[in-house]
Simulated assay, not measured.
Amino acid sequence: MSDVTTMEQQMPRSIVRLSNGRLSYLENGSGTPVLFLHGLNGNGSSWVDQLSALAPTMKMWAWDAPGYGESDVAGDSVTDLANVAIEFLMACDSGPVNIVGHSMGGLVAMKIAIMKPGLVKRLILSCTHPGHGLSDQEGANERYQRRLRELKELPREEYGRRRAKGMLPADASDLVFRRVADIAAESRPEGVVNAAWAIQTANLQPELSQIQAPTLVITCDRDSVAPLKKAQPLLDQIPDVRHLELRGLGHAPYIEDALRYNAAVSDFLIGV
């Protein structure tokens, strides 16, 4: 039995019914409210280290994005995903909340902060970027087309291993590799197709100056998926922004070095 499975058993998924259908999520802790939004090949289980370690000081929710986990699909744009997240937040908490968005989840987090600035207290954008800005006519780029083909054609375990290889440094531990691969292997084609299209067509750069929440941008020097170069527009255009580089880590820092990642989250959200 994997460590992820063990921790999930301690924090079973809950289901809430929203206007688009069901949304599944993990929940734990008490204190400062925080919503965690996972990346393209993640799900709520991506955040079990945070849900465990930060529970004494934070009330946390980690959603399964539409089309992930047990969540129903709900559109294929960042706006569609943000609308679901906003409805979920309104169902969970009436006041401003903190949001941690990783990769694809970072785009959703930014869009929430743009659409509903009063809903977001503080914002952490982890290994993310403002979107690729392709038009509907241009279609998804070859990287994403290949990924979608692999998800449909490969055994799930092999798909997970390929995604972990692309996300992690070559010297990542076997345990970290297995955890990232196991989570990626749970990806559902309908979720990844819609989320990938959202990333492809989003261009949040013109709206970044509208983000009012104090924002921490986390980058990792061994992240080949969303390196500093892709995150630079966030640092240039979000008004109240600071930057933290986690050295030696790739595209799954919340698992690769949970202690360092948790310290960064805690310091920014409650150590102010």
Results as ranks from 00 to 15, higher is better:
28 N>L: 02
272 V>Q: 15
191 G>R: 07
168 L>W: 02
9 Q>L: 10
30 S>C: 05
156 R>V: 03
158 E>D: 10
220 C>V: 07
242 R>Y: 00
99 I>N: 10
167 M>V: 05
202 A>G: 12
204 L>G: 03
24 S>M: 09
78 V>C: 14
142 E>H: 13
183 I>W: 04
88 F>T: 07
266 S>E: 14
44 G>V: 07
68 Y>G: 01
94 S>F: 00
188 R>M: 11
230 K>N: 10
200 Q>G: 06
76 D>N: 14
260 R>S: 15
258 A>P: 07
137 Q>I: 06
183 I>S: 03
187 S>H: 05
16 V>G: 00
236 D>Q: 15
42 G>I: 03
213 A>N: 12
52 S>T: 15
157 E>L: 05
55 A>D: 09
97 V>T: 03
49 D>N: 13
31 G>C: 07
135 S>T: 15
66 P>W: 05
104 M>W: 14
138 E>S: 15
71 S>Q: 05
182 D>F: 00
26 L>C: 04
5 T>K: 14
205 Q>N: 12
259 L>T: 11
231 A>F: 05
141 N>Y: 09
95 G>S: 14
238 I>D: 02
156 R>E: 10
239 P>C: 04
259 L>W: 03
16 V>C: 07
243 H>N: 08
164 A>P: 11
152 K>P: 00
185 A>F: 08
220 C>G: 09
21 G>F: 00
154 L>G: 01
64 D>G: 00
68 Y>D: 00
106 G>S: 08
248 G>L: 09
101 G>M: 05
173 S>G: 12
7 M>C: 06
158 E>K: 13
8 E>S: 09
75 G>T: 07
3 D>H: 08
171 D>G: 03
21 G>N: 02
60 M>G: 07
157 E>R: 12
23 L>N: 00
198 A>P: 11
22 R>P: 01
218 I>G: 11
175 L>G: 04
28 N>H: 11
209 S>R: 10
172 A>R: 00
237 Q>R: 14
110 M>D: 01
17 R>I: 06
241 V>P: 11
200 Q>W: 02
143 R>E: 11
74 A>I: 05
267 D>T: 14
41 N>F: 14
186 E>L: 09
59 K>M: 12
177 F>R: 12
190 E>M: 08
65 A>H: 13
242 R>I: 07
130 P>D: 04
117 P>R: 12
81 L>I: 09
257 D>T: 03
185 A>D: 11
65 A>I: 04
272 V>R: 14
67 G>M: 00
111 K>I: 01
268 F>V: 04
3 D>R: 09
216 L>D: 08
113 A>Y: 01
79 T>N: 11
213 A>V: 12
172 A>C: 05
96 P>E: 10
21 G>H: 03
197 W>Y: 07
118 G>M: 06
46 S>K: 05
64 D>W: 00
218 I>D: 09
26 L>V: 02
78 V>R: 08
87 E>R: 01
176 V>M: 01
96 P>Y: 10
138 E>Q: 15
106 G>Q: 04
